[in-house]
């Protein structure tokens, strides 16, 4: 199993630690702030309070055996750059660093970071896209021309089968899953619904109101399909 380390337990770093731990990954959480370290100890057993700009301290806790390190030290550019450099030099296989601005990203790239992330920028783009196209629920770019997209079906699709809609022949797009909300009575006897995912949709599957289609294909073709009213 890959060993992860998260250095800097601000909101972003904390969320990374929590998610990795919930997914059963081995994750070492590091911060110099005692309070943050204590908070993270509720989620992962491997929590260490240290100053990660101290190379010896990092070596003492076995940082060279880490497979993937995520550097998210907040507003301190100098610390972020120094920690990234130390991690690369001691042989961490993959170092992912959070950048605060394009200049910071450039420096990180020059010292050999494997991946730079801009959480605020990426979330900003996502929020803007969701405002412009509220029917799009998830979008994964596979390459500049291809993507996987989850979107709510247009009203004209409801009551029709995939065969009748002929999405593949008409739009050259593949439907890889259909997500449905199925009304039910829950364990407490209350009305509720459960989400069902059909991962092997076929031509006879009928589309209902509120269904979500997961499609893969050329971005332009998907856009044409989505614009169908």
């Amino acid at each position: 199993m890959r060993q992860f380390a998260v250095i800097g337990l601000g909101k972003f770093g904390f969320a990374v630690v929590k998610t990795l731990a919930e997914k059963g990954c081995e994750v070492l959480a590091i911060d110099k702030d005692e309070e943050k370290v204590r908070e993270a100890s509720g989620f992962t057993t491997q929590v260490i309070q240290l100053d990660a700009t101290d190379e010896d301290a990092l070596k003492k806790v076995g940082a060279e055996d880490i497979d993937v390190a995520i550097v998210s030290v907040g507003e301190n550019l100098e610390a972020s750059i120094l920690i990234t450099l130390i991690l690369k030099e001691i042989g961490v296989k993959e170092v992912i660093s959070r950048a605060l601005n394009p200049h910071h990203a450039k420096v990180l790239q020059k010292i050999g970071v494997d991946r730079v992330i801009f959480p605020e920028r990426e979330m900003g783009i996502k929020v803007a896209e969701s405002l412009v196209s509220p029917d799009i629920l998830e979008q994964i770019r596979l390459s500049p021309n291809y993507e996987i997209l989850e979107f709510t079906v247009p009203s004209s699709f409801t009551g029709r089968t995939l065969k009748e809609l002929a999405i593949r022949t008409k739009y050259k797009v593949n439907v890889i899953a259909i997500r449905k909300k199925v009304p039910c009575i829950n364990e407490s006897g209350e009305s509720d619904f459960k989400e069902e995912i059909n991962l092997t949709p076929d031509g006879e599957d009928e589309i209902s109101v509120g269904d979500v289609l997961v499609v893969v294909g050329d971005i332009k073709n998907i856009e044409a399909l989505r614009k169908e009213k």
């Binding site: 509220p134 029917d135 709510t152 909300k181 009304p183 009305s191 509720d192 619904f193 109101v209 509120g210 979500v212």
Partner: peptide, 14 residues
Amino acid sequence: YYHLGLVYEAKNNL
């Protein structure tokens, strides 16, 4: 109101 919420959510009118 809860049931109206459920129906709207089922229709993806979030």
